[in-house]
Amino acid sequence: MPHTAASIREKSITFQAQGWWEVMEAEGWTEEIRRETAELNAVLARIEAGEGEPEVWVHCSSDTGTGWTKKAVITAGVRLDDVHYPAHDPVVYESRSRDGRLKAHEWIRRQIWHKDPAKSRLVIDADVTLRWETDPRC
């Protein structure tokens, strides 16, 4: 997983372009694909020019049964116009909570994040935003 602002930007552009080529190969060059390709190229050019904010997004949830199993889907990417453009396939971290009073993001944060990189399971540069989000259904 990329962890610096520059590597997140670079990987995001590459990952988005690669995914789009797979779509085009599968569906062919229709008029809709051409229009969407032009829109994506404009977004990728903006990201390459330095627009948008590199971030690591941690989306947390808990199982709907007992709520003891907590899950985090972690993705580095660039946030532009309130859309997260990922730089890689999501990384999933699951853990069984010992404290039922904690929300999913509170438990996951205790498990993977520490300000001291030597103690943290999730290491990112200081200039990259770390955004925690809990699924409201949990």
Rank of each mutant, 00 (worst) to 15 (best):
residue 104 A to Q: 14
residue 95 S to R: 11
residue 2 P to N: 11
residue 97 S to C: 15
residue 99 D to N: 15
residue 69 T to I: 10
residue 118 A to M: 04
residue 108 I to S: 02
residue 80 L to P: 06
residue 124 I to C: 01
residue 130 L to S: 08
residue 78 V to C: 12
residue 22 E to Q: 08
residue 19 G to Q: 09
residue 2 P to W: 02
residue 71 K to H: 04
residue 124 I to V: 11
residue 77 G to H: 06
residue 108 I to R: 03
residue 17 A to F: 05
residue 15 F to T: 04
residue 80 L to Q: 08
residue 29 W to H: 06
residue 27 E to D: 04
residue 104 A to C: 14
residue 131 R to N: 05
residue 85 Y to R: 10
residue 101 R to K: 10
residue 102 L to T: 13
residue 118 A to L: 06
residue 105 H to K: 03
residue 8 I to H: 12
residue 33 I to K: 04
residue 94 E to M: 13
residue 68 W to T: 13
residue 119 K to W: 09
residue 92 V to G: 06
residue 47 I to E: 10
residue 107 W to Q: 11
residue 138 C to T: 14
residue 23 V to L: 04
residue 31 E to I: 01
residue 129 T to Q: 05
residue 91 V to Q: 07
residue 41 N to A: 13
residue 8 I to T: 13
residue 105 H to W: 11
residue 47 I to T: 13
residue 62 S to M: 13
residue 122 L to V: 08
residue 85 Y to W: 15
residue 27 E to H: 01
residue 111 Q to P: 03
residue 52 G to F: 12
residue 74 I to C: 05
residue 25 E to Y: 04
residue 29 W to F: 10
residue 89 D to N: 10
residue 105 H to F: 13
residue 5 A to I: 05
residue 92 V to I: 15
residue 19 G to R: 02
residue 41 N to E: 14
residue 36 E to T: 01
residue 21 W to C: 06
residue 136 P to Y: 12
residue 61 S to N: 10
residue 87 A to K: 08
residue 127 D to P: 00
residue 128 V to S: 00
residue 44 L to I: 15
residue 23 V to P: 04
residue 120 S to P: 09
residue 90 P to A: 13
residue 96 R to Q: 14
residue 18 Q to T: 07
residue 55 E to I: 03
residue 48 E to S: 12
residue 67 G to I: 07
residue 10 E to Q: 15
residue 48 E to Y: 05
residue 32 E to R: 01
residue 119 K to D: 15
residue 15 F to I: 03
residue 4 T to C: 03
residue 17 A to N: 10
residue 109 R to V: 03
residue 44 L to H: 15
residue 3 H to S: 13
residue 110 R to P: 02
residue 64 T to K: 07
residue 45 A to D: 14
residue 88 H to N: 04
residue 31 E to N: 00
residue 27 E to R: 08
residue 99 D to L: 13
residue 58 V to A: 09
residue 104 A to S: 14
residue 47 I to V: 14
residue 13 I to Q: 02
residue 85 Y to I: 12
residue 56 V to Q: 07
residue 80 L to Y: 05
residue 72 A to Q: 04
residue 9 R to D: 05
residue 64 T to I: 12
residue 100 G to L: 13
residue 72 A to L: 05
residue 116 D to Y: 02
residue 39 E to Y: 02
residue 95 S to C: 12
residue 72 A to H: 04
residue 132 W to G: 06
residue 29 W to N: 04
residue 94 E to V: 14
residue 24 M to Q: 02
residue 131 R to P: 02
residue 129 T to H: 07
residue 18 Q to P: 00
residue 9 R to S: 14
residue 122 L to N: 09
residue 121 R to I: 02
residue 134 T to R: 06
residue 86 P to A: 09
residue 10 E to G: 10
residue 87 A to E: 09
residue 14 T to N: 12
residue 122 L to R: 10
residue 98 R to P: 03
residue 125 D to P: 00
residue 46 R to C: 09
residue 99 D to R: 09
residue 7 S to L: 06
residue 71 K to F: 00
residue 116 D to F: 01
residue 127 D to N: 00
residue 25 E to K: 04
residue 36 E to D: 06
residue 67 G to S: 06
residue 119 K to H: 14
residue 26 A to W: 00
residue 117 P to W: 00
residue 91 V to E: 09
